[in-house]
Computed example of a mutant assay.
Amino acid sequence: MTDQKPKAMRRKNKRCEVVISDRTYLFAHSSGRKATALRDGIALARMVRGRWSRATTVTRKTLAATDALDECILTVFHKVVTPGRTGAFDQVMTDLSNI
């Protein structure tokens, strides 16, 4: 995961980028619960993480036709990265615990 802006700690500034088979996939977080998955700049899907007791539930709305590689990357984004990155406080605490 890389920061879109140097020293940026907000969720909306976090992104996950994957380059495979001459394709660039980007998982861009738009809020604390939402993100959009793109392939070469084309939106493939929007994902939203649930609230409160459903915080581990992620829904996906497919926006474009996908092939097997697209589905594999979308599954990684959905299950591993998940929409809505941790906030600045949680990131600082994680960084401190890794020292």
Rank of each mutant, 00 (worst) to 15 (best):
L69D: 02
R39H: 05
P83N: 13
T56L: 13
T57H: 14
L26W: 02
L38P: 00
A55R: 13
D67I: 12
S31E: 05
R54N: 10
W52F: 12
V81L: 13
D70W: 01
L38D: 01
V76F: 14
V48Y: 02
A37R: 02
F27P: 01
T59Q: 03
G41F: 09
L63Q: 06
L26P: 02
T75P: 05
L26Q: 10
H78N: 14
A68L: 12
R51Y: 13
G50K: 05
D22E: 10
L69R: 11
L69I: 12
T36L: 12
T82G: 11
A55W: 02
E71F: 05
D67F: 04
T56P: 04
D40A: 11
L63E: 04
P83K: 15
H29F: 01
L69H: 05
V81S: 08
T82R: 15
L69E: 05
M47D: 00
L74V: 06
L38F: 10
R39K: 13
A43C: 07
R49Y: 03
T36K: 06
I20W: 08
D70M: 08
T36Y: 06
Y25M: 10
R60N: 04
A35H: 03
T36F: 06
A28E: 08
K61G: 00
T24I: 15
A68D: 14
A55T: 09
T56K: 15
R51T: 14
G84M: 04
R51W: 11
T66Y: 00
V48F: 02
F27K: 03
D22Y: 07
W52M: 09
A64L: 01
R33K: 14
R39P: 04
R39C: 12
D22F: 13
G32Q: 04
R33L: 06
M47G: 00
W52S: 07
T75V: 08
D70V: 10
D40K: 07
R46V: 04
R46M: 05
A28S: 09
A65Y: 00
P83M: 15
A64H: 06
T56A: 15
Y25S: 08
G32D: 07
R46N: 07
R33P: 01
D67N: 14
Y25A: 12
